[in-house]
Amino acid sequence: MPLVPRVDSDVADSRLSTTAMSSSLTDACTPLKTKYDSCFNAWFEGYLEPVVSATSDEQRKALQKAKAEEYERNCGAMWTDYRDCVQRAVADKGLTQLLEDARKENPMQNPPSPPTKP
């Protein structure tokens, strides 16, 4: 079996339906979201474990690079379609400014420190 299963077919979609997925902001984006989420989840499954178990920084970075390319190849187009739809939905619901303000206030570009041990 390939490490990352194909998810861009209806067959794969119906197989994935055992785990329910949440809806999008608007019904129009939900099919695009489902497709993209399935693609990302499959990719992430093939990403996290090998990267966690990499034995050297060099090996890990090479793996990350290959996985980044694989993500772009498998999910890149689905992401663009979905993102465009969500951006329109965000604008339609009047959330664009709230979101911009929140990003300005707290960009959260870097992970927070882990909690200190009690």
Binding site: S23, S24, K61, K67, A68, W79, R83, L95, L99
Partner: peptide, 21 residues
């Protein structure tokens, strides 16, 4: 509802950052 707004993987650290609404 749950939607992804932005997602990136840091090529140095391998950290996956996801922004959702």
């Amino acid at each position: 509802s749950v939607d992804v707004l932005d997602r990136s993987v840091n090529p140095e650290t391998g950290v996956v950052r996801t922004e959702r609404i």
